[in-house]
Design a protein around this nucleic acid. Structure first.
Length: 431
RNA sequence: UCCGCAGUAGCUCAACGGUAGAGCGUUCGGCUGUUAACCGAAGGGUUGGGGGUUCGAGUCCCUCCUGCGGAGCCA
């Protein structure tokens, strides 16, 4: 007799196995008791039949409460009446820990209650599926870059000053000095691109903005590639290849999870195919005006405007060459129009908003020095960053992608908070 | 920070200014194939806090707190 994970039971028909897990739900019908057991790998209907069960076995099966931990020994049987087509005829049952009244019932709950019980909510089917998709995306990201000979160079989380000087930062005491939690790894990645050529960082990012929307978290995960010698067109190709490959991977390997989440796969599938539309910022403004939005050249786009642009194509859409004035200081000006930056935002369809922001970086020492001054940034804090241009300047480009927004989009979630195990939001730091 | 919505049983929600209700969960009973099983019964309440109007407030008014959605900002 061997221990088995539930996912492998279809290959073990007729064998006696032990399964360990938790009681997800139970139903009884006179002389029968159906125990739905979950072990993380799947769900199993374990059946106890009173006439063939010992008194102890039957009583234990009756005593079990939702989320009690247990083990069952029995024979794996094929049965069309069981969910998944396979069930276990239980011959022995062990109660490891009897669970007191479990807060999360198989009925509906509100978001506040569920978030207060996030540590338990993670056990439920839907959250389980989301974390599986997230896992696939995270691994897919690392696989994508590893296959292409990128080197993972992680940036520090504690930093001495604002990376971009715009967003509000969380601060903490650092032996008497003030340290800030990183809001981007990019600046630290650029020197590493001079060392390895193709690099990426992947870690948590912190924004202390008091944003209260379904698209914002205070702490989120971001992956940022940075590539030496890559110009703007190459960056657009990279972003497109990257995102489409992740979508294809999730569609291929997470079909069960997407089904549990009732994700409309037909709406996601087009994003697995290249190319993605590329719309010049100026054309995007015109298109929005034609749709009745009060868009003006020079403005950044709002959430509704982004949605309108990406939904035209029904797949991620890249908006290119934004006005330099509304973009970060380190972005390379467009050689054909210095008022524009070689910047791109990739907007996901179905209202999921910006998932990627990137640009070609300024490679000239003088130009960067000038921009730092124009933005009123403390030059001293950026000496090391200027060194990237001083000692062997090189053209390079990169982008950042927010993991939770991508997970949220692929899973079809209505809120980013379900896309991360423990969401950090305004007014929420528990559990 | 601004605008809007909400707070009633453990959970999700009802209740015209006039006796505080249902479903799920829990406990007990019933059923030999259940699929969020079903049937019967029981237990479960300071209606977010404070103040006011009224013969009478879950309901109307003021105020505070908490949460949700959106704006701004961004991934």
């Amino acid at each position: 007799m061997r221990d088995a994970e539930i996912r492998e039971l279809p290959q073990l028909i007729g064998q006696e196995v032990r399964v360990r897990g938790w009681l997800y739900n139970a139903r009884s019908s006179g002389k029968l008791r159906f125990l739905v057991v979950r072990d993380g790998s799947g769900y199993l209907q374990a059946v106890v039949f009173k006439p063939s069960a010992s008194e102890t076995l039957w009583n234990d099966a009756e005593r079990l409460t939702q989320e009690s931990s247990l083990w069952v020994v029995g024979t794996v049987k094929e049965d069309g009446r069981a969910p998944g087509g396979v069930e276990l005829g239980v011959s022995e049952l062990g109660i490891v820990s009897l669970c007191p009244e479990y807060p999360i019932t198989p009925k509906e709950h509100g978001p506040d209650f569920l978030l207060n019980n996030r540590h338990l909510w993670l056990r439920s089917k839907r959250q389980h599926a989301v974390m599986r998709v997230r896992n696939e995306i995270v691994f897919g990201i690392r696989d994508f870059f590893y296959q292409r000979n990128y080197v993972n160079i992680d940036s520090p989380i504690l930093t001495p000053a604002a990376c971009e000087g715009t967003s509000t930062l969380f601060s903490t005491d650092y032996f008497g000095d003030t340290a800030y939690l990183s809001q981007s790894g990019q600046l630290y990645l650029e020197p590493a691109a001079a060392a390895h050529g193709k690099v990426y960082c992947f870690g948590p990012t912190f924004r202390a903005e008091k944003s209260k929307t379904r698209r914002h978290l205070m702490e989120f995960w971001m992956v940022e590639p940075e590539v030496a010698w890559m110009h703007f067109d190459g960056l657009l190709d990279l972003a497109e290849e990257f995102v489409s490959s992740l979508v294809a991977r999730v569609l291929d390997r997470c079909a069960d999870e997407l089904a549990w989440l009732e994700r409309d796969v037909a709406k996601l599938a087009p994003a697995a195919e290249r190319p993605y539309p590329r719309i010049d910022y100026g054309d995007a403004v015109e298109r929005l005006k034609a749709k009745g939005f009060p868009a003006q050249f020079g403005d950044d786009f709002g959430g509704d405007e982004e949605t309108a642009l990406a939904d035209d194509a029904g797949k991620p859409t890249m908006i290119t060459r934004y006005p330099a004035a509304i973009k970060a200081f380190y972005m390379e000006p467009d050689p054909t129009d210095p008022a524009r930056a070689l910047a791109v935002d990739m907007i996901a369809p179905e209202g999921y908003g910006e998932i990627i922001g990137g640009s070609e970086r300024i490679s000239s020492y003088d130009k960067l020095e000038q921009r730092i001054a124009e933005h009123g940034l403390p030059r001293q804090a950026f000496e090391w960053y200027l060194d990237v241009r001083k000692y062997g300047a090189f053209p390079h480009s990169g982008f950042g992608m927010g993991i939770e927004r991508v997970v949220s989009w692929m899973c079809g979630l209505s809120h980013l908070r379900e896309a991360i195990p423990y969401p950090r939001m305004l007014n929420r730091l528990y559990p």
